[in-house]
């Protein structure tokens, strides 16, 4: 089948462009490794990743290391200012009015915060995205019904909904997660629907239909990979929102229940001491902001890194380096 045919084709059609393209892309071929290398090239993304790893590790093992420091009261050390080791390392970040170590409380709160915010974001992302992609791909009544449901949820004040639900049921972490997820689903639903509706009219999706591929297969193969990076970026923004929403609930007394503590709760509790003991709310506030920004930067980076058409933007500085020392690269 191939012999005579390809002989006819090959000689004058082998594209010249190959030569230089091969050189350029040698390093990029092995997927995961190159993604890691790309990450190292971007200083901001690397720092963000390190921050996130640090926060994650803190939430994972920190509370065990701190023992009961977070709850141990010591009125002798009440309202100590931060940044001094005079009272021992545990009071380096100061203490609250009951003399509890801020450092320990921040560490313990990180676990609570992440264990509420992460599942809430993940559930909303998962449900909202799949639903939105499905609605957008099929259009028609599925789309209309989905969008009206989203409108209903959006138009209902989410905090009010949370208050009602959490009063009726107990304000457990699981319930907080569920209610926060439910109210944030429409955000993902709308975005996913819009992108999916646009994608389903693309030619490569048409091409897949001509092979007889089933809608679900097309959604998995062609729609989700394109939509996902956008939704992940959205999710990092939502992460911030959910942490703050959780703190509002905690402030109202229907969120995290003391003696449990979350960053949001610390912010709202410390607010009344802002003039006398600023560190009570500033430190957890900074923790929230830093974590969110790190997640956001990393998501923005990830969106470019996973888009083959944009990836060159990240490969830049490295390429110039190679150009300057060609001898090493040219060897293989």
């Amino acid at each position: 089948m191939k012999s005579s045919l390809t002989e006819g084709v090959a000689p004058d059609q082998l594209p010249v462009a190959h030569e230089h393209q091969n050189e350029k892309n040698d390093g990029k071929q092995d997927g995961r490794l190159s993604l890691f290398r790309l990450l190292l090239k971007d200083r901001f993304a690397t720092v963000s990743a390190l921050i996130l790893v640090f926060v994650g590790l803190t939430a994972l093992v920190g509370p065990a290391l701190m023992g009961d420091l977070a709850t141990k009261q010591n009125l002798l050390f009440a309202n100590k200012a931060p940044f001094t080791l005079a009272h021992g390392w545990e009071y380096f970040l100061g203490s609250d009015s009951l003399g509890r170590s801020m450092l320990a409380r921040l560490v313990v709160a990180s676990r609570t915060t992440l264990s509420v915010a992460l599942p809430a974001v993940a559930v909303a992302l998962f449900v909202g995205s799949l639903w939105g992609v499905w609605a957008g791909y099929h259009r028609g009544w599925r789309e209309n019904v989905s969008m009206r449901i989203a409108d209903v949820i959006m138009s209902f004040p989410s905090l009010l909904l949370a208050v009602v639900v959490l009063y009726v049921f107990s304000p457990s972490a699981a319930n907080i997660v569920l209610i926060l997820a439910l109210t944030r689903i429409p955000i993902y639903l709308r975005t996913a629907r819009a992108e999916s509706a646009e994608l389903q009219s693309r030619t490569f999706v048409d091409a897949a239909r001509t092979f007889g591929a089933k809608p679900n297969a097309i959604i998995v193969r062609h729609v989700i990979p394109v939509v996902l990076p956008t939704l992940l970026t959205l999710a990092t923004l939502e992460f911030c929102y959910v942490m703050l929403a959780e703190s509002s609930l905690s402030f109202l007394g229907i969120g995290i229940q003391p003696p449990d503590v979350s960053w949001g709760l610390m912010v709202s509790q410390g607010r009344q001491y802002l003039q006398t003991a600023w560190w009570l709310s500033i430190f957890p506030g900074v923790a929230i902001v830093v974590t969110t920004i790190a997640a956001n930067v990393l998501a923005a980076w990830l969106r470019i890194a996973t888009d083959p058409a944009q990836r060159w933007r990240l490969a830049l500085p490295r390429k110039r380096l190679i150009a300057r020392i060609p001898a090493k690269e040219a060897k293989p």
Binding site: R202, T203, F204, D206, A207, R221, H222, P225, V226, T306, D307, P308, A309
Partner: peptide
């Protein structure tokens, strides 16, 4: 027709 749109870039 369009060799750019008909192939999934990913």
């Amino acid at each position: 027709q369009d060799p750019f749109a008909s192939l999934n870039a990913r």
